[in-house]
């Protein structure tokens, strides 16, 4: 589906007077994984926060975000159809594993049996069949990470943001989970934007790599000419 596209148009970030990110324009096609790399503190997580509408108000930002050709910059996070995966799995501790997954399912799936079947399918996909009633706290790190991804995918996002979701897993799990994530993203032809400081992640993603965060001291700080309409 060619309409499934994530477009960034001239996105820049500023923290106080300090420019964090020079205007960045980028199109991520359906099923493509683009990696943004940079050292910590260069603003890559803030970039993702801006894309999904959750940038801290202490930042100033400008530029437009388009999902499937529709400008979503002025929409609240919940209406952007942009899914995001964080470093921590952030499974809700008060819900069971199955309820966490069902939380992601859209309300349009009304039928209870159908909801349960979709959750069971997702669990099987994560090699967690029969885990629906379990407390998420009893799962291993890798299992929790898979549930978190599937919960997000069940919500039918149109684009996928990955905020260093592999950094807390150990080496062996990391490779497996990376494969799991990229595989799902491609299968659902989601445009995917990964930020990381780990080159191995970028290589595994197998797509374009964009390096940011290289403001040398002497370089003139590029101030965004547009008004920071997107900041909130």
């Amino acid at each position: 589906m060619s309409a499934n596209m994530l477009q960034l148009r001239g996105i820049s970030l500023q923290l106080g007077d300090r420019p964090l990110l020079a205007p960045l324009s980028l199109t991520v096609r359906a099923g493509e994984v683009v990696t943004v790399m940079g050292p910590s503190g260069c603003g890559k997580s803030s970039l993702l926060a801006y894309l999904c509408g959750m940038l801290d108000p202490t930042f100033r930002a400008a530029g437009r975000v388009l999902v499937g050709g529709v400008d979503v910059t002025d929409r609240p996070p919940e209406q952007r159809r942009i899914g995001i995966l964080f470093q921590d799995d952030l499974l809700f501790p008060h819900l069971s594993v199955g309820e966490n997954l069902a939380f992601g399912l859209p309300p349009t799936v009304r039928n209870r049996r159908q909801r349960r079947a979709l959750v069971a399918a997702a669990l099987a996909d994560a090699e967690l069949a029969g885990f629906a009633e379990r407390d998420p706290a009893t799962l291993s790190g890798g299992q929790r990470a898979r549930v978190a991804l599937l919960r997000m995918l069940l919500s039918e996002p149109a684009a996928l943001l990955l905020d260093e979701p592999f950094s807390k897993l150990d080496a062996d799990l990391k490779a497996k989970f990376r494969h799991f994530v990229f595989d799902h993203a491609r299968r659902q032809s989601l445009p995917t934007l990964l930020v990381t400081h780990d080159r191995a992640d970028a290589v595994a993603a197998g797509g374009r790599i964009i390096e940011i965060g290289e403001f040398s001291e002497g370089a003139p700080a590029e101030s965004p000419s547009e008004s920071p309409s997107g900041s909130f």
């Binding site: 942009i82 809700f92 919960r151």
Partner: peptide, 21 residues
């Protein structure tokens, strides 16, 4: 705040996200 971020990225309105999560 992090729970809220997750819920909103899953499409939940702020008030509903707060009550459910």
């Amino acid at each position: 705040e992090r729970s809220i971020s997750v819920a909103r990225a899953l499409g939940y309105r702020p008030a509903t996200a707060w009550l459910k999560v």
